[in-house]
Amino acid sequence: MTETTEATTTVVKIDAAGVSHRDLNAKLREAVANGAQKIELRNVHGQRYIGTDLNKPVEIDIFGTPGNDLGSFMDGPRITVHGNAQDGCGNTMNNGLIVVHGHAGDIIGLSARGGKIFVKDDIGYRAGIHMKEYGEKKPVLVVGGTAQDFLGEYMAGGILVLLGLHLEEGQRHKAKFVGTGMHGGVIYLRGDIEQYQLGKEVGIAEPDEKDLQDLQRLVGEFSSYFGYDAGKILENRFVKLFPKYLRPYGRLYAY
């Protein structure tokens, strides 16, 4: 581990080659405990749980491919992945930021309670299942590409945005069972989706004024990370998916 001092921040560089996830996380913990504000992880090759138990707003730059559960339960760090992320990215995350300059795998943002995740390209299956919100805490997942099936299932809060930037003219998002069991939160899609692709608890609407403000803010932030022109992205039509009921299963039972 070498330490170099930049103008005001301390950058800690860690070579992850051949280091187990347990040792790598121990190094991260130690660096954060010693007051590191910026950490660079080089040669990351599939180590799981990176950043899991960190609760400081430390910046972590990951070069290589981090493994599953990147930033799960995370509470504050700002992680940038210069590559792809695997499954479980931001699982049950509480606070912080994850920016992925590439694709991400399945169950991204599962049960997230807060924080933001931005993915440049596509994401896998079961993204954003059971995301929640409470008061000021509202998790956000913005995806440049598209998602696979079961997007936003059981969603209880938060904001999911699919920008469909790589869809061809006239091509739809392909995900099915979108928002099944959804009872909170909102999903915005740039590009089209058919009713049959949605769970029966999901309604479709045009974004209203407030939705557009949220979208402007989130697409603006997305574009700033990945060098897009936010105005151009926002020129296209967006649709809003929302839960039709707060209590989807309220009438299921006999007492």
């Binding site: 479980g88 059971h130 919100e133 209880a156 809060g157 069991g181 909170g184």
Partner: peptide
Amino acid sequence: RMIPEGTDALSPAPQHDIYSIEDLSQ
């Protein structure tokens, strides 16, 4: 629980990040 007041608190049947012993291990 960190969910809005008055909404159903739904616990899905499976944990959607656990579909196998390997996932449980994770």
